[in-house]
Simulated scan of single mutants.
Amino acid sequence: MSDGTFLVSIFGQIEYIETLAAAGTSWHCKYEFVSGADWKIIGGIEAGLSQMANAINNGDKIVLNFPVEVQFKSTNPYGWPQLVLSVYRGMQLEGYGRTHIPLRPGSHSLEVNLSKPQASSLLGYIGSFFGYQPELLQPKMLATTAGNNLIRMESNGTVLLSLNLISQGLQTLGYDVGKMKD
């Protein structure tokens, strides 16, 4: 690529959610890729919504095996892509997660910790007894640092991702991300 750009291709799947799941509950996951201003999506899907999956026994993993695939083009590694997840039980938010996409080409297994926002006022706390759950208007704001220190969160499980990364043109531009895993 002689025009000063490089390509990054990401594909894989959201494998499962691991949290305290009651038998018979339905779960699903939203995902969204977030990247810097110099990054452009040239293929695949930037955001998606998984199918519903049910927990059969108490405490089971909720298996989604939901595919994700996206290709980026950029001239600058600043704003390297991140994946933001929103996990729901029925229509109730159970947590948000965020992870950077690995720099090194190859296969990666990523465990993303989930956390959910807590009420910030007494009225919100009382509302939680009646089913009110605070949610972020734009979960992709978690991929930045702007105002995140003002959000009270509590840990609430993990999501396992299996991602494969292929890059082209990074070494030509002088970037060294290491060798592929054997």
Rank of each mutant, 00 (worst) to 15 (best):
L114F: 03
V63R: 14
P77Q: 08
A47L: 01
A119Q: 03
G48D: 12
E69K: 15
P81Q: 07
F129Q: 08
L110W: 10
K140H: 12
E111T: 13
Q82T: 12
F130Y: 01
E46H: 11
G95Q: 02
G124P: 04
S120R: 09
S115M: 09
G97C: 09
I56T: 10
R104L: 10
P117L: 00
R104C: 11
S120A: 13
I126N: 07
N57F: 15
P67T: 08
I101D: 01
A47D: 03
Y96P: 02
S128V: 13
P67E: 14
H108E: 07
L64W: 06
G95A: 10
S86T: 10
L49P: 02
S121A: 10
H100C: 14
V112W: 09
G48T: 14
A47S: 11
P102L: 08
N58C: 14
G127P: 02
Y78H: 06
P77L: 14
V84I: 10
T75C: 10
Y125V: 08
S86D: 00
V70L: 09
T75Q: 12
Y88N: 03
M91C: 07
K73F: 08
Q71G: 03
P81F: 00
P139Y: 00
L85E: 05
Q51W: 10
S120M: 11
I101A: 10
E111Y: 12
S121H: 06
T75S: 15
T99K: 03
G59S: 15
N65V: 01
Q51G: 12
E46A: 11
N54S: 09
P67F: 11
P117H: 01
I101F: 06
S115G: 08
I126E: 00
Y96L: 01
T75G: 08
N113A: 14
Y132K: 02
N58K: 15
K140P: 03
G48H: 13
G124D: 02
A119L: 02
Y125N: 05
G79D: 02
P77E: 07
R98C: 13
F130S: 01
V84H: 06
P105M: 09
I56S: 04
V68H: 11
I101L: 13
L122H: 01
Y96F: 02
Q138V: 10
S107A: 14
H108Q: 04
L64P: 04
Q51R: 09
P134V: 01
Q82W: 08
E69R: 15
V84M: 07
K61Q: 11
Y132G: 00
N58A: 15
A119D: 00
Y88C: 04
M52I: 00
E111Q: 14
S86H: 06
H108T: 03
Q118K: 01
L137T: 00
L114E: 11
G59H: 15
N58L: 14
E46C: 06
